[in-house]
Design a protein around this nucleic acid. Structure first.
Lengths: 232, 232
DNA sequence: TCAAAAGTGTTAAATATACACCCATGT
DNA sequence: ACATGGGTGTATATTTAACACTTTTGA
């Protein structure tokens, strides 16, 4: 694939995905390590493949998920968006011969997506290079390759803008979840307190959630009701 | 340029722009005619040019405008997004020899923008092919080339979604405009009645408009106040 | 003087906000 | 019994909505 990339893929086009989840009270993003720097999952588009199919293929390869929420949030199209020096460094580490005109060193226009996932259901896969994977705090990112820190930060900014319109944050929770979970998650994304009473009324008035007959078991204190999204 | 395109431009990437204005109580979109079918203004990205610069270059070439509002609204990335038959027809009409592998017949991923302009300030330019230009009703489009009708319709749908968040519709009015003008325009885009009193209060409470000292002259009935956007 | 368009006020309904109270559960 | 977290009610403030009233101008 490393040799055949130029024949298989659309040139100058790439996809990067911020896979975002919620764990231990923080927002997490799935990253891949390479020589002590980190990168977003991403890839290229086969010549007979749509952008949407390519993004789904990449997401499924890296997470094992078949169903998830994903959305384009930005196109990164700067003229100087090529990283020959970093690519050279990476290829050297991987014992791959270096050519300045190697197809990976082109200028790339990246179509950037964010995906909202339930971390519990994800099985991260380091891919063909067996890269180490980890869930990093989306608000405290490590040193990253290329402009991926910029892309990850852009995903968070757009998620924050979208959440009150799209009402898609439940995609980061298990299939059955409680209102306090959803409440905590939205406060975290919006970085502000939301009144519990009002939150519950508003969410239920959307008509997209269904209360399950049995409350959540195995928790201390009063058992919260469980809900699921009606389309699920 | 027709021969050198493959060397000058990024392959497989194009830009299409829905240039939207407001005239005679209807939403208009700027189209170019070619052999009795119409197309959106668009073009390609030079190899050392950013997506944003390319979109600005194309918009300025076609409208003469230096300042305007423009925004990416969608990426059209279907695998079958190539139009060899239509291209063949077009090239034949233009007396340009046909090659099935001509660079224009590739699959293209189109980054689609909408631009909001004041029609009065636009000088449409049919470009290198001296195409006829016209402002078409955006809700009653002619037969169009490629998937451009789909793109134009998508622009309208996204504009409708954006308008209450971005508050950018004033870009379709002259520099100095009246609240009734803005009111009529927003009712048109949203396809519903908006109470006049409330509209005026809400727009002014945004704090982005400045009332000018002189009311609009030369109109019958009571003279409305003129406003301009503060950044203008 | 009257019709038309513009500007703004008034009232009622709906929604948002802040807070309080009660409930269920484990210690 | 009590601390903790969950669910929901109440009172108040703010915003939305519907409509009415007044002003200005040309015919």
């Amino acid at each position: 694939m490393l040799d055949e990339g130029a024949n298989l893929f659309l040139p100058n086009l790439s996809i990067d995905i911020a896979v975002i989840g919620f764990e231990a009270g923080t927002l997490k993003v799935l990253l891949l390590e390479l020589d002590s720097k980190w990168m977003l999952p991403g890839g290229y588009i086969f010549k007979n493949e749509s952008i949407d199919d390519a993004s789904r293929r990449i997401l499924t390869e890296r997470t094992g998920l078949q169903h998830y929420f994903m959305k384009i949030f930005q196109v990164f199209g700067n003229a100087d968006r090529s990283f020959p020096d970093e690519m050279r460094h990476i290829l050297k580490k991987l014992d791959i011969p270096w050519h300045p005109n190697y197809w990976m060193c082109q200028r790339y226009v990246s179509t950037a997506f964010y995906a909202l996932v339930d971390i519990e259901r994800v099985t991260p896969d380091g891919g063909i290079l067996s890269q180490k994977t980890a869930w990093w705090n989306l608000r405290d990112l490590p040193v990253m390759w290329f402009d991926h820190q910029h892309i990850a930060t852009g995903a968070l900014r757009k998620l924050k803008e979208d959440i009150l319109i799209d009402h898609h944050s439940y995609n980061m929770l298990p299939e059955n979840f409680t209102m306090p979970q959803l409440h905590q998650l939205q406060e975290l994304i919006l970085e502000k307190k939301i009144d519990r009473s009002r939150f519950q009324k508003k969410m239920l008035s959307l008509g997209i959630f269904e209360r399950l007959p049995e409350p959540k078991q195995g928790v201390p204190h009063r058992r919260p009701f469980l809900y699921k999204h009606k389309d699920h």
